[in-house]
Computed example of a mutant assay.
Amino acid sequence: MTTSLMLILSRKSSHCIFFDSKFGEKALQLAADYDIPVYFREDLFSILGNDHPDFRWLIAGPARSGSSFHIDPNSTSAWNAVVRGSKKWLLYPLEVVPPGVHPSPDGADVASPVSITEWFHELLWGDTAAQGETCGVYLSGRRNLLNVLEFLNRPNSKELVSGTMDCVNLYEKFQSKYEQLFPGSIESLQQQAEARKLQNQKACMWDTITDVKTGGFKFGFS
């Protein structure tokens, strides 16, 4: 993007939301008016220095405006503070697709037969964050590192990665710098993830031969 102000139009609605990722550079006092909560101070992208992708936004919109279903930029964690008004939230695990929502196979687009407002009214109500409240979407810092690396390294990273003019090379820059500062740590995380995967597979295999209701074994005859 060539401008710091991003306009999002809500589907089937004239409502819009403004995102300003450079407000801290233009309104210094506004940026100084808040502190990062202690729970969210770990910023792994900070190792990139001036190549740090956009990481903070001032968001404004009229009543009943909102974003579509999405994964936060670059699959990272986020925290959101409500300055004025209120905001409704619906949070799903990464592996769960919300009902009535259809993401494309490459993750670049998300389709829904209804607008987000209609979705709230017709399908489900979410929790509301009121003025002065903060909501954290936090995936435990370094434990989320592999998800971020996988996202940055997808074949269509040019369409998915955001907050930088060099979308294609962000993965290489970040992965290389991280390994330089914390040698062997990515490999260690990969080994831990593989161990968890094997453990889950063993648990699933046990479920196939036991009856969870009676505690007895299941036998098949051919």
Rank of each mutant, 00 (worst) to 15 (best):
F18K: 10
I116Q: 14
W206G: 00
K22Q: 11
L5A: 06
L139V: 00
L58Q: 08
G61E: 05
L181E: 06
P103N: 00
L198M: 12
L198C: 08
G215I: 04
A193K: 15
D35H: 08
H70L: 07
E150C: 09
S157V: 07
K213A: 12
V212G: 09
L91Y: 03
S188L: 12
R154F: 01
S14L: 10
G100I: 04
S176I: 00
T117E: 14
L5V: 13
Q199G: 15
R84D: 09
R56T: 02
L58F: 13
D106F: 04
T2S: 13
D33Y: 02
A31Q: 12
P99C: 00
T214D: 05
Q199A: 08
L7P: 04
P53D: 00
W79A: 07
K158L: 14
P113R: 02
D33R: 12
S188N: 09
N74I: 03
A63E: 13
E42T: 11
V101S: 10
F219A: 09
A111I: 03
W206E: 09
F18V: 12
S188Q: 11
S67V: 11
D127Y: 04
I186W: 05
P73A: 01
I8F: 15
A108V: 13
V96S: 05
P155M: 01
F219G: 02
V38G: 02
P93D: 01
A129V: 15
A203H: 10
S115Q: 10
P73S: 02
S67K: 04
I47Y: 04
F221E: 09
L94Y: 12
Y92L: 10
L90N: 14
L90S: 09
S140L: 10
G24Y: 03
W79H: 13
F40K: 04
D51V: 00
R154N: 03
S157R: 15
C167V: 03
N80I: 14
F45C: 03
G136F: 06
I36H: 07
G85K: 11
L94A: 12
A81E: 04
A203G: 03
A63V: 12
L7Q: 09
L149H: 07
S77K: 09
V114S: 07
K213E: 11
D207Y: 02
E122A: 12
G85M: 07
E122K: 15
S4I: 02
L44D: 03
V161L: 09
M205W: 04
Y92N: 08
P93I: 00
F182C: 10
A78G: 15
K197V: 03
A195C: 10
P93G: 01
M6D: 06
Q29D: 11
K177A: 14
I116F: 09
W206L: 15
M165A: 12
A78M: 08
L91S: 07
S185E: 10
V212F: 02
Y34F: 15
K218Y: 01
F40P: 01
I186Q: 08
Q201M: 13
G49P: 11
T214Y: 06
L181R: 12
A203Q: 13
K177Q: 14
F120P: 04
W79R: 08
S112H: 05
P93Q: 01
A78V: 15
